[in-house]
Simulated assay, not measured.
Amino acid sequence: MNYGVVEPDGIGRTRLPDGRELAWAEWGPRDGRPVLFCPGAATSRWLGFGGSVLEQAQLRLISVDRPGLGASDPAPNRTLSAWADDIRYLIDDRGCGTPLVVGFSQGAPFALALAAAGMAAAVAVVSGTDELAHPRFAGSLVPQVKEMVDLVAQDPETAEASFAGFGSAEALWHLIATTSSEVDRSVYTDPVFQQAFQRAMNEAFIQGPDGYARDTLLAMGRWPFDSSSISVPVDLWYGRQDTSPVHSPDLGESLTRMIPAANRHLLPDAAGSLLWTHTEMVLRTLLDHVR
């Protein structure tokens, strides 16, 4: 199986007003409804999803390298708010109007930042990293994650340096391969999928670990937007077999209550890889919001 992972139909870059460039990849029909994809931690625009589903649904998937990852120019000291500002220009450049947005894993806060800025028609958060620094999780984080969250709050410069010291394609692949559930390992180690996944990770670190480190710092700190201010539909997708300690301690239950138009989908047999095992369900539900 390839789990819908295929070569992009096109790749390119968008120049921003300050001269930096954001790199992107596209799949699906050029005139399809735009779906902006915020990839997970330490992966680049090369790892898409959907395969032939996109053509059938008339959706155009656009995956973007965040600054400092893959082929996007770095932006030291960037914030989630600055990410939204960058994407405004990319949306205009690519003729996306108000796109649908998907955020996978650590891409979740980046997707929700776009929704909070009024830049999304609807959002799908899939196996998403929750706001781990929020007080509602004070007593439910595993010790190692709590240490990271506390360090981000107390000494963000040291935390970012620590993330950079750990960050590499090899280290993160080993972490995924050894801590994922059996459901996820069967997907991630599928020969076709693994090749695509590791290619995307290698590409993500081509400029070094600083982009990954900044992403992790932003995801593990307090988010600069109020989740209750998000007015568009948000679907939160989690699998009960997901063993990641940095996704959501309560599998999106409390975040669903915080976002006014949120709906949680908790799949009993799925795990963190459900973006690829349940692609059609995720996209169909997302598209239903704008039909």
Rank of each mutant, 00 (worst) to 15 (best):
L217Q: 10
G107V: 02
W223M: 02
F37N: 08
G12H: 03
M119I: 09
D155C: 04
V125C: 10
S244N: 13
V125F: 12
A25G: 06
D269E: 15
D65R: 02
A120L: 07
T178M: 11
D210S: 12
H174C: 07
S181L: 03
L267S: 06
V125Q: 01
F110H: 09
N77Q: 15
L274S: 11
D31V: 03
Q144A: 12
L275Q: 10
D226R: 09
G32F: 04
L283Q: 04
S81I: 14
D242G: 03
V232W: 04
W237Y: 12
L218S: 05
D18L: 06
P209R: 04
F225N: 10
S168A: 06
G50V: 05
M1I: 11
G107W: 02
A75W: 08
A120Y: 00
R240N: 12
S186N: 15
V232I: 11
L218A: 11
C96R: 07
D190G: 09
Q106L: 11
P135I: 02
L274A: 05
T79V: 03
A261C: 07
D250N: 09
R15W: 08
G221P: 03
Y212H: 15
F37S: 01
P109I: 11
V192K: 04
L275S: 09
L36W: 06
F163A: 01
E147N: 14
V282H: 07
H134Y: 07
W24Y: 15
C38A: 13
R214W: 05
F205N: 05
I87N: 11
S44D: 01
P233D: 04
H174A: 15
T178N: 07
V35C: 01
Y3C: 08
V192H: 14
A25E: 07
Y89P: 05
T14E: 14
L172D: 13
P74W: 05
F225Q: 00
G239F: 00
G12I: 07
I87H: 00
D190Q: 08
V234N: 02
H278E: 14
P99D: 06
G19A: 08
N263S: 13
P29A: 00
P99L: 09
D65S: 02
S181W: 13
P260L: 12
V234H: 00
P143E: 02
L47E: 09
Q154Y: 09
P209M: 05
